[in-house]
Design a protein around this nucleic acid. Sequence first.
DNA 1: TCTGGGGTCCTAGGACCC
DNA 2: TCTGGGGTCCTAGGACCC
Length: 416
Amino acid sequence: MTIALVDCESFYASCETVFRPDLKGKPVVVLSNNDGCVIARSIEAKQLGVAMGIPWFKIREDYLKKGGIVFSSNYAFYGDMSSRVMSILRSLCPKMECYSIDEAFLDMTDLASHYDLYEFGCYIRSVTKQWVGIPVRIAIGPTKTLAKVAAYQIKRRDLPSKVMIIDSHNRIDMLRSTPIREIWGIGSRLSHHLHGMGIDNAYALANSNIATMRKRFSVVIERMIRELNGEPCIGLEESPSPRKQIIVSRSLRSPITRVEEARMPLSNFVARAAEKLRSEYQHCQRMSIFIRTNRFSNHRQAYIADQQTFPVPTNDSRLMLRTANGMLNKIFRKGYRYSKLGVILDDCTLVSSVQGDLFLAQDTHASKLMQSIDQMNQKGARIFFASQHGTFSYPRNQQQVSQRYTTCWEELPTVS
DNA sequence: TCTGGGGTCCTAGGACCC
DNA sequence: TCTGGGGTCCTAGGACCC
């Protein structure tokens, strides 16, 4: 097999600069949801020493003083830019998996016999740069895991071409210079264990005993070892399977102590989750809510959660709101300063494949009602449920949001 | 003062069945 | 004194990813 991993360089930061050529060459960072952490950095920002994931408040003053540019995250915009990149990739190689907002795997096995892979990689890069304005890296190998290794090596070696191919000639070299923590699927826990066993790089892992490692850890690591040795174990998922779980949660602007203060944000999260569920033509059978204190604060800590199973899968906002509020009343405990809460919908299934209940009357009005509400809201109405209404402390301000250049008529870029 | 949000997969162990 | 053996299903929690 020949797998190419195409990943966008500093994706969010790159998006922000596409329509702002004046920012070229300047440090640019993009912040997480509540302007909490740095989640994307331009090359110049990396050179300034801005660490990935660092809390914004810790570097803000210093960074701005040095002339750094900052953006709050603008997911509508990034999502649209992502789908533009993806459609180009699909046109070049139809066997494709959209792996994340800024990465895709391409199965180039068939193309490999007709094209020079390196040149093809360069072509992909030039086309996405020219048509969308986003620079990409192309990392090629016989398995997904090895393609990931190649992607790491492009960064490590700072290759100007941004194209790298792992084959039998350079594989050992590549693996030797890839630290264990950089392997796809090895996180902090596993890398700690492996270091303890004297396995420090990808080459050592590739040559470890599969049976022993599987017994000690799990089948996950077995697949990893095989993939590092060029044996494909992780397939390409061309058509995305329906989601199994939907989560909506946020940190609050300021901590809350009373149950009434939690009601409104929770209702909004539940309504949003139900909307997502319906937009994917799904029902869910189980709903959990959780509420927690700020894990970084010195105050007393608490994480409380509850869940409920519906007798019949549902996507009716009214039932879900009632259920969520009932659970909230049941679990809320006084004496804590809560700073985050959310809802999780589990056991999501397609409406079309749901088994009805013989003894419960089907509420056909419900689905029509929900459909009407969704349609009106999509057209710009603002229809919501009573428990969602009022002022509440979500979301925290996003101070520096860019325009939705590509998805909103009022915010199209102007050229003068 | 201020530290994101949303996912997936795997395993162990309990409950239950015959 | 001595109390089976083998299976499935479900869930919570861990680990990882972007």
